[in-house]
Amino acid sequence: MQLVTGGACSGKRKLVKHEYGRCSWITAYEGKELKDWRQKWKEGTVLVLEGWEKWIACELEKNADDFAVRQLFTRVIKDICEEEKSRDSTAVIIMNEMGRGIVPVSPSERRLRDLAGWILQDTAEKAEKVTYVWSGLAKQIK
């Protein structure tokens, strides 16, 4: 599994589109749900999952337990890694870096920022390769 991170609008999508051929692209920005990833991952394509902060925010609304939410996403990442291995294919996860701004005033935004940061760390730990994108340029940081 490959993780591509960086700030919003930093060129992550462009990089992934350039680097990988045929993709099954599942994006929260078009209202797609995360849970369908297995069915939507077409044979012989690279799975791309994008818009994690939206999926995380959605889960946080339903679940008051931060630890449970973090575990849920760890589980999804683990499943994706296993599926990737069994298919002998590639999964690419695009996650925003969101921890470098001012501490948000609203508690729900602080909670989202915390969870997104933890899940980013968890995903980076599982990833074989981590790429950080800045101003359209890419650096492999793992």
């Binding site: 700030g7 609008c9 930093s10 969101m98 800045w134 359209g136």
Partner: peptide, 29 residues
């Protein structure tokens, strides 16, 4: 760099971030 914090709501600020991101990519390239 203003894009590594929590994404902000609001059409104007999102448009600004998007434009700035594009110009950064252009300048860096």
């Amino acid at each position: 760099d203003v894009n590594e914090g929590l994404p902000m709501d609001g059409e104007t600020v999102q448009k600004y971030m998007y434009y700035l991101g594009k110009l950064h990519q252009l300048a860096a390239a």
